[in-house]
């Protein structure tokens, strides 16, 4: 009896998670403009996407922002993780706890505080401000992910390299970094996805002409029920699925060689 209730609730949960996405996909290939009923299959809305120059520009902006912010956040995050993951002093634990503050701060607040900072120092809102904003909210996450990997690593391997005659730099380059790589890649993937999907913080820190894809979608969604937005959204969902499948394939324990 209990099991049945659990199963019913779980099914309801899965349905509410996925039914909207399925309906969105259907809507993206539906002839009907309003999507009120099924009028037949079409790829017209996808075709129209190709003529939307503003979308291509937004996509380019999103990619540039995503890549640069990911590099900055992953780089800084890895360095910080090396300091935090290896030591268990009271001060590093305090720093770790402090990292949670940016993570739990509502995005609206992070967004408006950066807006205020940029306007106070007279920075024009543009590509640079968006990149800075994205790198900032990704940074705590990359630190946590790399740190988790570092904690699961067998530290005696580094000692073994040192005992075999490698100096600290060589050991770092040839042992620590390769072992840490899966964590770094995971952190970078997380950072890129967070950046690529972010709407709220970008909303406050983007200037005219630096709209990212979510900003353009938001604009389209608010204005009309334009089926091209369905096609675009469906493409994003499909893209996420494919990336996730690829990532899961790549991050399997055998490939990664986990020794946690």
């Amino acid at each position: 009896m209990t099991r049945r209730i659990v199963a019913v609730l779980a099914i309801l949960g899965y349905v509410s998670l996925h039914l909207p996405l399925l309906l969105l996909m259907l809507g993206s290939v539906n002839v009907s403009r309003s999507g009120a009923r099924w009028d037949g299959f079409t790829l017209e809305w996808y075709r129209r996407l190709l003529h939307r120059h503003d979308l291509l520009v937004a996509l380019r902006t999103s990619l540039i922002v995503g890549v640069v912010a990911t590099i900055v956040a992953t780089g800084l995050g890895t360095l910080a993780a090396l300091a935090l993951g290896r030591n268990r002093w009271r001060i590093t634990r305090a720093v770790e706890a402090l990292l949670l503050v940016p993570i739990v701060t509502p995005e609206v607040i992070a967004g408006i505080s950066l807006l205020i900072l940029f306007s106070a120092v007279g920075m024009h809102l543009g590509l640079l401000t968006v990149i800075i904003a994205h790198a900032t909210f990704c940074l705590p996450f990359t630190i946590l992910v790399v740190m988790a990997r570092l904690r699961g690593m067998d530290r005696s391997l580094e000692d073994a390299a040192l005992a075999l005659g490698a100096d600290e730099f060589t050991t770092f380059r040839r042992v620590t970094v390769p072992l840490l790589m899966p964590g770094i890649i995971a952190a970078a993937l997380l950072a890129f996805t967070l950046s690529f999907d972010d709407f709220i913080i970008t909303f406050f820190t983007a200037g005219p002409g630096t709209s990212t894809l979510p900003l353009v979608i938001y604009g389209m969604v608010r204005r009309t029920v334009e089926p091209t937005v369905n096609a675009l959204s469906a493409l994003l969902v499909i893209g996420t699925t494919v990336l996730l499948l690829v990532a899961q394939h790549w991050m399997t324990p055998e490939r990664v060689g986990t020794n946690a």
């Binding site: 899965y14 998670l17 996925h18 039914l19 909207p20 996405l21 309906l23 969105l24 809507g27 309003s34 999507g35 009120a36 009923r37 996805t193 690529f196 999907d197 709407f199 979510p214 979608i217 938001y218 969604v221 937005v229 959204s233 994003l236 969902v237 996420t240 699925t241 990336l243 996730l244 899961q248």
Partner: peptide, 26 residues
């Protein structure tokens, strides 16, 4: 996977997709 997928999917897109379910002609 079916939980992780929406976890990674754009929140904006998922919110928008909800409209298909609950609108007057949904």
């Amino acid at each position: 996977f079916l939980v992780v997928l929406p976890f990674w999917t754009s929140f904006l897109v998922r919110t928008y997709a909800t409209i298909f379910l609950i609108r007057d002609t949904g």
